[in-house]
Structure formats: C-alpha cells, structure tokens
Amino acid sequence: MTYEPVSTRRPNSAFVPSPIFLGIVAVFAVSGFMAWTRFGNVGVDVFLFVVAGWLVSLCLHEYGHAVAGYFSGDHSVADKGYLRLNPLKYTSPLLSIILPVIVVIIGGIGLPGGAVWIDHRHINSRVKDSLISATGPLANIVLALIASVPFLARDFTFADPSDPHYAFWAALALLAFLQVTAAILNLLPIPGLDGGGIVYPWLSREYQRAWNLFAPYGFILLFVLLWQSRANEYFFSFVYFFTDRLGLDSGLIASGFDLMRFWS
C-alpha cells in the first residue's frame, strides 16, 4: 500500500478568510445593529442575526478541527481550503451547514454538523488525534463564554420587553444557548460525533473496527436519543444547568426563539 505524501507547500492564501465567510460576518454585524436599533421588522433582524451568528460559529467550529489537524501533521487541510473558513469547502455542506441551520430554525438546538476531513494517517499521536476532535466543541465553549459576558455582568432575569434593546439581548441569549447545546451534543461519546472522535484513538483495534461500523449512523442515534422524552428532558436539564450559570435567563432565550421565528 502506498500513501500520498503530505503537502509541504502551504498556499499563500491558506489562512486568509474567504469572501464568503467575511460576507456572513458582515450580515451578522449589520443585522445585530438592526436588532439593537429595532430597524424595520425586528423579527427579521433577529432571524438574520441568529442565523448569521450560527453560521459564523459553524465555520469556527470546523476551522478548529482544521487548524488542529494542520499543526498536528496533516498539511493537506491547507490545500483543501479548510483554513479559509469557507463553508462551501467542507466535505458535506449539507451536514455541516444546511441541516444545522434548519434544525436551529425549527427546533432551536445547536445540532452538530459534519466535520472537515482529516487524513489521520499523518497524525502520529493519540493525544493529537483526540485534540483534533476536541477543538470543534472547544470553539463552541469559547463562543458561549464570549456571548455570555453581558449576561454575567448584568441581571436580565426581569428584562423589560419594552426596553429598546430587548430584541438584541434576547437574540444574543439564544445564540449563547445554541453554543452550549452544540458543545454538549458534540462532546457526547457517540460514533460519528466529535465526542466519539475524542475517544476513538484510545480504543483497541477490535473496538475501533466496531466503532467504524456505527460511525455513519451517529446522527441517527442522536436523533433517536433526543426523540425520547426522558432523554430529551435530561438533555435540556443539563443544558439549563450551564446556561443558568452563564447568566442566561430561560425566558429571554425563549423570547429570542419566538422573535427569530417571525413568521409564526
């Protein structure tokens, strides 16, 4: 068996953010200003702000995997364009972008997306292998902490809907909530998810072969678990345990979700 050599020449633009990502960031910033000032239809403002913010987080999640892969030895991620934060470069834009956005709009939960493809033949350490999988959820954790800073500094428990900036705070609370759900879901030790990827390098060969058989069905298993009322209840209790400690009021999160679904 012959292996393809790892690319040793990094493209000059490898780490330059793509115009598509910059465009998403621009929409996020502009819609955030619109929600803050209640410009036009505030529901549309919140919808654009939450969806664009969620897209930015999805790109940063996958970017975390790619950067960790690059510095762990797989330089091919630079040739594939993974380091440019371009969502169209992912191995499965449907799983990485479209499906998670649809689930956010319909159900208000941060569904894990399909990861960038890392050539693990060039990763010579189990610790590095696990770190590559862990950096995606870590990005969600960092984003959740950043988005929660205003809520840790000020009590929004009794926020007044008549406040001119209420829609913005509700949307930001929802975004932080989505990051928490995404981090928790991604860290579940389920085949095919990042949590499974963290565990995988430490399994025996026999368990790895069995793990690989179930990996393509990880998403289905996740849906089945969340479909169960008891599991769903435990999951959201766990989520709210963390959001409460981040100062995120459940009522404000619910308001953000209601505002986002402006058509209902």
Results as ranks from 00 to 15, higher is better:
residue 140 N to C: 05
residue 140 N to K: 01
residue 140 N to M: 02
residue 140 N to E: 12
residue 141 I to Y: 00
residue 141 I to M: 06
residue 141 I to L: 04
residue 143 L to M: 12
residue 143 L to V: 11
residue 144 A to N: 13
residue 145 L to E: 13
residue 146 I to R: 02
residue 146 I to T: 08
residue 147 A to V: 13
residue 147 A to Y: 14
residue 147 A to R: 01
residue 148 S to Y: 09
residue 148 S to I: 08
residue 150 P to Y: 10
residue 150 P to N: 08
residue 150 P to K: 07
residue 150 P to W: 09
residue 151 F to M: 07
residue 151 F to Y: 14
residue 151 F to A: 12
residue 152 L to Y: 08
residue 153 A to I: 13
residue 154 R to D: 15
residue 155 D to H: 08
residue 156 F to A: 08
residue 156 F to P: 15
residue 158 F to R: 06
residue 158 F to W: 05
residue 159 A to E: 14
residue 160 D to F: 04
residue 160 D to E: 06
residue 160 D to Q: 03
residue 161 P to R: 03
residue 162 S to E: 12
residue 163 D to M: 03
residue 163 D to L: 00
residue 164 P to N: 05
residue 166 Y to H: 06
residue 166 Y to A: 03
residue 166 Y to Q: 02
residue 166 Y to K: 01
residue 167 A to H: 10
residue 169 W to F: 14
residue 169 W to P: 10
residue 170 A to K: 03
residue 171 A to W: 04
residue 172 L to E: 15
residue 172 L to F: 11
residue 172 L to V: 13
residue 173 A to E: 13
residue 173 A to F: 09
residue 173 A to D: 15
residue 174 L to D: 15
residue 174 L to P: 13
residue 175 L to F: 14
residue 176 A to K: 06
residue 177 F to V: 09
residue 179 Q to F: 03
residue 180 V to A: 04
residue 181 T to V: 01
residue 184 I to E: 02
residue 185 L to E: 06
residue 185 L to Q: 05
residue 185 L to G: 07
residue 186 N to C: 04
residue 186 N to W: 02
residue 186 N to F: 02
residue 187 L to E: 07
residue 189 P to C: 06
residue 190 I to V: 14
residue 190 I to D: 04
residue 190 I to S: 05
residue 191 P to W: 07
residue 191 P to M: 07
residue 191 P to R: 04
residue 192 G to T: 14
residue 192 G to F: 06
residue 193 L to A: 08
residue 194 D to Y: 05
residue 195 G to N: 10
residue 195 G to L: 05
residue 196 G to T: 13
residue 196 G to Y: 06
residue 196 G to M: 09
residue 197 G to R: 05
residue 198 I to E: 03
residue 198 I to A: 08
residue 198 I to F: 00
residue 199 V to A: 12
residue 199 V to F: 00
residue 199 V to H: 01
residue 201 P to M: 04
residue 205 R to K: 08
residue 205 R to D: 07
residue 207 Y to W: 03
residue 207 Y to Q: 13
residue 209 R to P: 01
residue 212 N to D: 14
residue 214 F to I: 15
residue 215 A to V: 02
residue 215 A to K: 01
residue 216 P to N: 03
residue 216 P to D: 08
residue 216 P to R: 01
residue 216 P to M: 01
residue 217 Y to M: 00
residue 218 G to R: 00
residue 219 F to K: 00
residue 219 F to Q: 00
residue 219 F to N: 00
residue 221 L to K: 02
residue 222 L to V: 07
residue 222 L to C: 05
residue 222 L to Y: 02
residue 223 F to I: 11
residue 225 L to Q: 11
residue 225 L to C: 15
residue 225 L to I: 14
residue 227 W to P: 02
residue 227 W to R: 02
residue 230 R to C: 03
residue 231 A to I: 01
residue 232 N to T: 07
residue 233 E to M: 00
residue 234 Y to K: 00
residue 235 F to E: 05
residue 235 F to S: 04
residue 235 F to Q: 02
residue 235 F to V: 04
residue 238 F to K: 09
residue 239 V to G: 12
residue 239 V to H: 07
residue 239 V to A: 06
residue 243 T to H: 07
residue 243 T to W: 03
residue 244 D to P: 11
residue 245 R to E: 10
residue 247 G to H: 05
residue 248 L to V: 06
residue 248 L to P: 13
residue 248 L to T: 15
residue 250 S to I: 06
residue 252 L to Y: 14
residue 252 L to A: 13
residue 253 I to K: 01
residue 253 I to F: 09
